[in-house]
Computed example of a mutant assay.
Amino acid sequence: MKFLTDVVPVDEHLNNIEKFINVCYVEEGWNVQQHGRVIALRSTDESRLSSAFKASLYLGKYNDMANTNRFLYSMVSAGHSYEPIRGETVLFLFIGIGKPVYDHLVTYTVGRPTRIAGGQRANVPWGFELPVEAKNPDEYAEELERIRNVIRLAKQDRAEQMQAARAKLPVGYIMPPFLMEFSEEALIKTVFRQRLFEKGAQGATVEVVSDMLNACLKVDPDKWNFLIDYHGPHIAQWEKAMRTLRKEGYTLGHIAQQAEVSLEEALEMPLYDLLIRTVGKLPPSMWEKMR
């Protein structure tokens, strides 16, 4: 990642952003948490009391409506409705993010009530993000100069409006900071699952979505660890294992053979671990094959 500090006052912008995060969120009592390039500014159900009340109403438990474990332990664990957290959201601020990652995130519209991305029109890019998968980094040096020329053209020479000049930008330019807000249900069931838990997402996107998840874990580790347990990356392995067992009709002997252990050894091993490392093993993603 390369910021063009010679033509964009990045440090000044960052100082102002930090100042007003404190004014607008921290001083208002929000538990602001950062991980990497992502800042969780506001979690509407930080104390879990809102989802506790809604889960209690859903289940008709009127004598204990502040039970913050009820949604997780009585609804998630039973596979019931996720309505109690559907309306609860996390507002994220993204800083230093390339346009390809923004494009991957903006595809999610259901469960995303807020998107603020002023840099899509008049604001200038902040730099260039080298693709994680790049094998020849030197080949991308010219992209920085292309971005500088666009900024000069629009902001210094004023020969073109930024709306027009941005057509000359390379795909991997760094967006100015932007906001996206997602419902907690959309995060755990869709965004985190498709971009993080399942294999196949592009490298930079995996990094940024990992930052989002880690920021959520800082806000409420109990809730998010519980949700990960029911929706995390191991779910794809479970599905793979069950499909394979049903299709192939394997016996424990077949599983032992795949694990390269004797049947006697297999009988003494935890069956879950044995299945995950054999019939539950996932094939490499396209990006892993490229690497």
Rank of each mutant, 00 (worst) to 15 (best):
L213M: 15
F20E: 06
E27S: 15
E133M: 14
F71N: 01
T190I: 11
E83N: 06
I21T: 02
R115V: 03
E160F: 00
Q194D: 15
P100I: 02
F53N: 02
A66E: 11
K54W: 08
A117Y: 08
S51R: 03
V124D: 12
H80A: 05
G232W: 01
F192P: 05
E248T: 13
A165N: 07
F92C: 07
L144I: 08
K199M: 06
L130C: 06
I116Y: 00
E288D: 10
R48T: 03
L169Y: 11
A186I: 09
E18V: 09
R243W: 03
P283D: 13
A122R: 05
M180K: 02
D64A: 01
L245N: 08
E268M: 00
T44R: 04
A117F: 13
W238A: 03
K168A: 12
V23C: 12
L105W: 15
P233Y: 06
W30T: 11
M162P: 09
D6G: 11
V10N: 02
D220S: 10
M286E: 13
S77P: 00
R277E: 13
T244G: 03
D220V: 05
E260I: 13
I97W: 14
F178Y: 14
E83H: 04
I276C: 05
F192Y: 15
A259W: 07
P283F: 01
E248K: 13
L72R: 00
E27N: 14
P9H: 03
A40D: 10
P9W: 01
A52F: 03
L93E: 05
L4K: 07
D273R: 10
S285P: 00
K54I: 04
E88L: 01
R158W: 05
E18Y: 09
L72M: 13
I174P: 12
V8M: 03
M290E: 09
Q161Y: 05
D11P: 00
P9R: 00
Y140T: 05
L105D: 06
K218S: 04
R146S: 12
P125F: 12
M162K: 00
V110E: 14
Y58E: 07
R86N: 05
S74Q: 08
M175K: 00
D229M: 09
P176C: 07
R121C: 04
D157Y: 15
A141K: 13
G280Q: 00
N225W: 04
S74I: 01
D6I: 09
D103C: 15
T68R: 01
A167G: 09
L196A: 12
F128S: 08
L72D: 08
R115F: 08
L252D: 12
